[in-house]
Design a binder for these strands. Sequence first.
DNA 1: GTCAGATGGTTGCAGGTGTAACTGTCGATT
DNA 2: AATCGACAGTTACACCTGCAACCATCTGAC
Lengths: 152, 152
Amino acid sequence: MDFRLETFLPYRLNQAAERVSQRFAAQYRARYRMTRPEWRTLAALGTYGRMTATEIGVNSSMHKTKVSRAVRALEEKRWLKRSENADDRRIEHLVLTAGGRRIYDEMIELARAYQAELAHLLGEDGLARLEAGLAAVESGLPAATAWRGPSD
Amino acid sequence: MDFRLETFLPYRLNQAAERVSQRFAAQYRARYRMTRPEWRTLAALGTYGRMTATEIGVNSSMHKTKVSRAVRALEEKRWLKRSENADDRRIEHLVLTAGGRRIYDEMIELARAYQAELAHLLGEDGLARLEAGLAAVESGLPAATAWRGPSD
DNA sequence: GTCAGATGGTTGCAGGTGTAACTGTCGATT
DNA sequence: AATCGACAGTTACACCTGCAACCATCTGAC
């Protein structure tokens, strides 16, 4: 029964994800007191401009409660502003404030530097293989939506 | 400033890990009411026999509080037994009970089947590339130990 | 032997998280 | 216009988690 956790794909992937994320996450946590959902929300808004909470969730694969709390946190930091939509009052448009965009720009700089460092650490072909493997996962496995139809 | 989260390695890896883990985690959660740390602890003990909590933590990359709580949970399920060590009374040796081993065997079966299914979904070369990429991460990046010396 | 520091393991606390239930709004059908 | 179901977003609750502090024990230096 030679099963070893260290060769089990879910375990290995989680480990790798943790290793690759850790130092970067430590940065936005320490420098800006941001959580991961907040960073993702900031990144989405910085990249695409005005979005609704639902759009952010789809774009960044986050559950709507995560988005909701991240939006609140960013709002309290004054990095984001809500504005209501007259046509459909269920929706809130979200935009970065000037201050938010400043943080976003700084974060992008950090992200780029980190990505470059990763590329260096992994080596050119290590990186290429990893990206090819990730592409296979992205196209071969269903998105982890935890989705359920309205009446289930 | 064409930064996109979808191309950022930490994000992609986390997404992939979630996709790959999700269905399997759903199984041990639903069938055995186990958390991930419990499954890892069970797997470690099933594979290596008698271990201490610290050894489990090292082997499965878990913080000691996670291990501690997982051990307690498995003990309450009567799947694991502690026994003290006369030479060093700080240490507890942990072993699966007969019942625990039965669950372990079932889980291994599930794990094998799942791994096979993943291999099929990813395709032969998708899998090969992914594993090569993971190997690069494992050898190129420091383990995410969150370690700190005694006085820091 | 004694004491300081290290080590194995547990626990209190302060957060982050998912689930389900909720509010308010919209759209379609009647 | 009244109603029913869908949808955007929020919240209460229970649970998991990390960190720091803790207790007990061991080890080595003296």
